[in-house]
């Protein structure tokens, strides 16, 4: 069998696509939660309370310090060992990617808000805007312009990092690819290049629309 034939042999292509769907599903859910929690934490970080600021800082540093793979093992195996609670591999993945994504989003939100010049806040207050009006109509539109490209960048990083979840038993697209290559290792030893090529295109098909979206949204804000 030739290498490229392996991609379409049997149900391989369908399996690769369903693996891709696992990757996309887990990434999208995690990114969604990350945005919600990230905005809340990020706004809290721009507030005045030093205690809240310090707590957020500690959270961010802890998340950044520990590799995602370790987080996945803690959430999938560690939690079961400590509490007897049995999370599914997908649930554990979503939690870990949300903890990580929210921390990164929060830091992006914080820096985006802080990049808005102080006189914008002061002018808004001088006009007698309420706190909500000030943030929603004055600060947010200016902050979001800088925020979008960074959020999209984070989202594509998260999509690519989901390759780790096969280590907690979730069969995502890269793992399916390895299975396909290995099943044909004696009949089609050169299949690896073709299968990895197909997976490259699949990742590209998912990530490229995101960067197009980011470009369009940024342009509109100009």
């Amino acid at each position: 069998m030739e290498g490229y034939e392996v991609i379409f042999a049997g149900s391989n292509f369908i399996r690769l696509l369903s693996g891709l769907w696992v990757t996309v599903r887990i990434s999208l859910i995690s990114i969604g939660f990350s945005l919600i929690f990230g905005f809340i934490v990020g706004i809290a970080m721009t507030g005045r309370s030093p205690l809240i600021k310090a707590l957020c800082r500690v959270y961010l540093e802890i998340v950044r310090m520990i590799p995602q793979l370790v987080w996945l093992f803690i959430m999938y195996f560690g939690v079961t060992r400590m509490t007897g609670l049995n999370l599914s591999g997908e649930a554990a993945s979503v939690i870990v990617f949300t903890i990580w994504g929210a921390a990164e989003t929060a830091d992006l939100v914080r820096s985006a808000f802080q990049s808005v010049p102080v006189h914008q806040f002061e002018s808004g207050r001088a006009l007698g805007l309420s706190q909500f009006q000030l943030y929603f109509f004055v600060i947010l539109p200016q902050a979001v312009k800088n925020l979008f490209p960074n959020i999209i960048n984070l989202a594509t990083r998260m999509i690519k990092t989901t390759a780790l979840i096969s280590l907690i038993g979730v069969t995502e697209v890269l793992k399916v690819g390895k299975q396909v290559i290995d099943a044909n290792r004696y009949d089609a030893p050169d299949a690896a290049l073709w299968v990895y090529g197909a997976i490259f295109l699949m990742y590209f098909a998912v990530c490229f629309p995101l960067s197009l979206l980011s470009r369009r949204l940024t342009e509109r804000k100009e």
Partner: peptide, 28 residues
């Protein structure tokens, strides 16, 4: 202390999510 905080965060998150999905008491 970072380890302790980490463990706490992890268990709180895990507990919250499983409570939401509603199969929290089930042992493996």
């Amino acid at each position: 202390w970072k380890r302790i905080t980490m463990a706490l965060c992890a268990s709180v998150m895990a507990w919250t999510v499983s409570a939401c999905t509603g199969h929290s008491d089930e042992k493996p």
